[in-house]
Simulated assay, not measured.
Amino acid sequence: MKPAPQLLTDPFLQLPTENSVRVVWFTEFAGSHHTVTYGERLQQKATATTTKLSRTREDQKSRVGKQTETEKIYQKPVMRDIWRHEAVVTGLTPGQRLPYQVTSITENGQELNSNRFTLTATPNPQTPLKILLTSDHQLMPMTTANLQKVAETIGQVDAVFLAGDLVNIPDRASEWFDDNRGGAFFPAFQGRGNYELEKAGVKTTYTGGELIQHAPLFTAIGNHEVMGRFSEESNLNDQFNNPFPRALAQETYQNNAQTLNPQNDLNIQQTWLKNNSFNIDTYNEIFTLPQNPLGGKKYYAVTFGDVRLVVLYITNIWRTPSLKADARGRYREKEADINNPDKWGYGQHIFEPITPGSLQYQWLESELTSPEFQQAKYKVVMF
Results as ranks from 00 to 15, higher is better:
M227F: 00
A48P: 05
R80V: 13
P243T: 13
T120W: 03
G329H: 04
F278A: 05
L92V: 08
D238G: 00
A30T: 03
T205V: 15
V381K: 00
Q270I: 06
Q148E: 15
I154W: 07
T27G: 08
F117N: 02
G109Q: 11
A215W: 03
L260Q: 04
L294I: 09
V89K: 06
Q291G: 00
E210I: 11
R319F: 06
L364Y: 03
T106S: 14
E198S: 14
Q75T: 15
Y38H: 14
S104W: 03
P123V: 08
E225Q: 12
R80G: 01
Q190R: 06
P125N: 10
T49N: 11
G95P: 03
G347Q: 10
T303Y: 00
I317L: 08
V23C: 08
N237L: 10
E28H: 11
L309K: 07
K2S: 08
P11T: 10
F383Q: 07
F189L: 15
N275C: 01
G183V: 01
L266V: 15
Q374F: 00
T204I: 14
N115I: 01
V23F: 02
G39I: 11
S231Y: 01
P187G: 09
L162P: 01
S135K: 01
N168W: 00
R172L: 09
T35S: 13
L289I: 09
V167Y: 02
Q96E: 14
R80F: 05
A247F: 12
K297L: 01
V102C: 14
V150A: 06
H85E: 02
Q138N: 11
A327L: 04
V36Y: 00
E225L: 05
G209Y: 04
N275E: 15
L266M: 07
F244T: 01
G164S: 06
Q374M: 12
G193I: 04
A87M: 06
D326H: 10
